[in-house]
Design a protein around this nucleic acid. Structure first.
Lengths: 251, 251
DNA sequence: CGAACCCTTGATACGCTTCAACAAGAGTGG
DNA sequence: CCACTCTTGTTGAAGCGTATCAAGGGTTCG
């Protein structure tokens, strides 16, 4: 096969110091488009944007850094602005210290729901690569919500989108086999493009699809021999989008 | 095995007329405790209760009746008060016209999220048995939310609970085998009791657990021969709760 | 250089589905 | 009343899909 397949490998978590680095606050500025992506619904007004900007605390995390742990009280709303954060369960095994279940690529909320329930976060969260986060203190957010009732609506929309995504994930796990899930994932990641760069380690992709890395490798090879895709390291070309779409079995 | 195992079978959907029966509105009254269960958070005030009561339209559905269809605009918030409603995908196959994915036993919201997103419901919903529903018109609800900001908070809590439930379901599908899922389901259904009556057809239970009815039957027999449970038709006794808990592998 | 990590490939084993057949209750109509 | 059909659940045999175990090669880092 290809020889230098690892030259363009995504940033791996093991190389970086996996320390919390808690207060690396930048005086950075968040683009309105990012806030708009996080808070759907109607167009954000200048007043809302200013309030969000003022209350947001930005954090820049190295790869592998802990975002929060299961059971910790959710006193802030956490959003990924750039990079990706993984949701899963931390395990104290040397081989696989973190069981990834879901990845969130910015801009996206990270476990938005837990803030409204007692009992803290339901899962552990870790940065899968270098990531920039924004944290909105719950108290300030509640004040803003009281002043701007539309903000509550936006949060409802964001939560409803999460429900949709989780619902689709559960559906796929129930009714699609590994190949279907992989193809659907590839098509979704490509977003209409015919080329695709894998931004995560393949084992993390496998974890999201609930298959083993070995199976992922075999499936990729299978698709390659079928002539549907071309793989070179972390670059995938979708050679036959129509065939892939049919294979994904999007219902 | 037992001979008359079907005498106490749950109401099956096929016998009832599967017609919409759209406007079977009763002038019934909904208990405050039910509203409280649906709308978590702080205790509901009399004003809120009165408003909910006034806007709610009650429907009583026969077994198998359609609640709503995928793609239909979500103009009302639908809640099950009594009975259970199944969420899934309608299929036009003679053998299995409805692919059940998730069941909601009253009191519970049915696809609460879709109201806040455009594009209508994401799944089909059908009554699994005789059920009583409440429908809250979205317009009236928005008015109430504007007057009583606490109501938005309650809906956020309800959606967050849905996220938790779906998240747990996805986790189980990824990391638990059929036996673990079944045992966890039994324990959850029993709710601390040592006896348990199955309220749905076993094939519907199997669908929820994402296994075939055949596998469910085999698992039940396996647990029976292990001495962990005793099965008689639709009645299950949990003989060894500690052993079951260990088997479920609750992490 | 060795160590640590990544991905890949092969052989094997297990879990679960699929297919087929059967038993039992419920509704239907002669 | 009985035969017929449709439902449901159960059981068995065979097969597919995926995990597990083991080994090997490539790259990076100390």
């Amino acid at each position: 096969m290809s020889s230098s397949a690892y030259l363009d490998a995504p940033s791996s978590a093991y190389a970086a110091p996996a320390l919390p680095l808690p207060g690396a606050a930048d005086a950075d500025w968040v683009e309105p488009a990012v806030w708009q992506a996080l808070l759907g619904g109607a167009r954000l007004e200048p007043g809302e944007l200013a309030a969000l900007q003022a209350m947001a605390r930005l954090r820049r995390l190295p790869a592998g850094a802990r975002v929060f742990g299961r059971g910790e009280p959710a006193l802030v709303l956490v959003a990924v602005l750039e990079g990706s954060v993984g949701l899963g369960l931390a395990r104290d095994e040397a081989a696989a210290p973190f069981h990834l279940e879901r990845t969130l690529r910015g801009p996206a909320w990270v476990d938005l729901g837990s803030a409204w329930l007692g009992g803290g976060h339901g899962q552990d969260a870790r940065a899968l690569g270098p990531a920039q986060l924004a944290e909105l203190p719950l108290g300030a957010m509640r004040l803003l919500m009281a002043r701007q009732p539309a903000m509550q609506d936006r949060l409802l929309v964001a939560l409803a989108q999460t429900v949709r995504a989780l619902s689709a994930a559960a559906h796929d796990l129930m009714h699609k086999d590994a190949e279907k899930r992989l193809v659907a994932w590839l098509l979704q990641q490509a977003g209409g493009q015919s080329q695709l760069r894998l931004a995560e380690r393949k084992r993390d992709i496998a974890a999201q699809l609930a298959i083993t890395p070995e199976t992922l490798s075999r499936m990729m090879r299978q698709l390659k021999t079928k002539g549907l895709i071309a793989v070179a390291g972390y670059t995938v070309q979708l050679l036959d989008p129509a065939g892939l779409l049919a294979l994904a079995g999007t219902e």
